[in-house]
Nucleic acid binder design. Structure first.
Length: 104
DNA sequence: CGACTGACTCGAT
DNA sequence: TATCGAGCCAGTC
């Protein structure tokens, strides 16, 4: 099974598009759902290169520790306005905000 | 081919 | 919380 970058990217976009408002997903989780665990970094690239025309809620994707994209503070604002709990240190409270399929 | 980098993750300190 | 180190994968030079 060889890695198909294009197919993977499309899977990622598809998954990110389904993240409900007020919920977030980690890069690793997205990679896992896309069928390729350990490809978190590829997900990060996908987000960075994602065409804005797709209007992907990429602000709902953070790393496993709940940290937001370096240099993009607006992301935190967007998440807060959607009801995502942000800790005092500016990190997302993954315990509550991480998207679990069971409550979807 | 080797070295470096990054919107990563996990565990240890 | 912050920082490391090791493991991870693809891109770039």
């Amino acid at each position: 099974m060889t890695f198909d970058h294009e197919a993977f990217i499309n899977e990622v976009y598809d998954i990110v598009r389904q993240i409900p408002s007020g919920r977030v997903l980690s890069y690793g989780r997205v990679a896992e759902l896309a069928g390729w665990p350990n490809y978190a970094r590829a997900v990060g690239r996908a987000m960075k290169e994602a065409p804005l025309t797709l209007n992907l809620p990429c602000h709902r994707v953070v790393n496993s520790q709940g940290r937001t994209v370096p240099g993009w503070h607006q992301q935190t604002i967007l998440l807060m306005s959607e009801g995502v709990s942000i800790k005092d240190n500016g990190c997302v409270d993954m315990k509550k905000a991480e998207w679990q399929m069971d409550n979807y």
